[in-house]
């Protein structure tokens, strides 16, 4: 029973890049419905960890269970896409297509070839796209060319795609790093709100400690490939944070 509640279970995961250790024997569990922020200095291995969770990268050693199943078992993109959705910086969308197709791309996992081809001419399941765009406040831009949208709007389109894709867990890799503070807050509050409404799990790599404390339940801090601390957001103190970002090498 306990196992079913864990969306991710990592046992002694290690990853090495050309003799440089990116992650060293890391163990973690992440429960369903948690909102986790991954913070830490540059080069701490946050994005590497996220890519391992996304099954994009394979770890050298250790074991990753996704919903209690070994990660190797998710060998097809379609199978994985129903479980995990990914949002990165704002360059994720196909700018030349209208917004509606970028949103409906979240349905490609369910659609066959002919239906997806037909949809490029007559958008299929348009109601679904409309509903998702309405929730991110972009319903009026549905037929706009995506590249004409601002950076913040494009991130909202990416969120609408995730709403249509309906994965169990969303992995976000610095989703607001290319945005100004006002838009960054707007995107983060919307993302966390939608994830809560959908009962999904969210793991986000973040640069800003302030946003991590404001919008997330649990903060995992990484340093030099290891977990430095793993605490509920309200228990993270300024002392811990200044130690985390200290420039001195750890022994």
């Amino acid at each position: 029973m306990q196992q079913l509640n864990n969306i991710f279970e990592l046992n002694n995961i290690s990853k090495v890049y050309e003799r440089k250790i990116a992650i060293s024997s890391l163990s973690l569990t992440i429960k369903k419905g948690e909102l986790v922020a991954l913070i830490g200095p540059s080069g701490a291995g946050k994005t590497t960890l996220l890519n391992i969770l996304a099954n994009v990268l394979k770890s050298e050693s250790g074991q990753l269970l996704i919903s209690g199943v070994l990660s190797d078992k998710y060998n097809s993109g379609k199978k994985l896409a129903k479980k995990i959705g990914i949002i990165r910086q704002q360059f994720d969308l196909v700018g030349q297509l209208p917004v509606v197709h970028n949103v409906l791309a979240g349905r490609l996992v369910e659609w066959g070839f002919l239906k997806s081809l037909l949809s490029l001419i007559f958008p299929q399941e348009k109601e679904l796209a409309k509903k998702a765009l309405d929730r991110v406040g972009l319903l009026d831009k549905i037929y706009e060319k995506t590249s004409n949208l601002s950076g913040g709007e494009q991130q909202r389109v990416a969120m609408a795609r995730l709403l249509v894709q309906k994965p169990e867990v969303i992995l976000a890799d610095e989703p607001v790093s290319a945005l100004d503070p006002a838009r960054a807050e707007d995107i983060l509050s919307m993302l966390t709100k939608l994830v809560r409404e959908e009962n999904e799990t969210l793991i986000t790599v973040l640069h800003s400690v302030e946003y991590a404390k404001k919008y997330f339940d649990r903060i995992i801090a990484m340093r030099e490939g290891k977990v430095y601390f793993d605490l509920p957001a309200e228990k993270v103190t300024d002392k811990l944070l200044s130690d985390l970002y200290d420039l001195k090498e750890l022994n």
């Binding site: 791309a105 996992v109 070839f113």
Partner: peptide, 16 residues
């Protein structure tokens, strides 16, 4: 490459 990877992680097949 980024949009292609994003589409792939959204579950698109090669032909999609």
């Amino acid at each position: 490459k980024e949009p292609i990877e994003a589409l792939y992680s959204a579950g698109a097949s090669r032909i999609q």
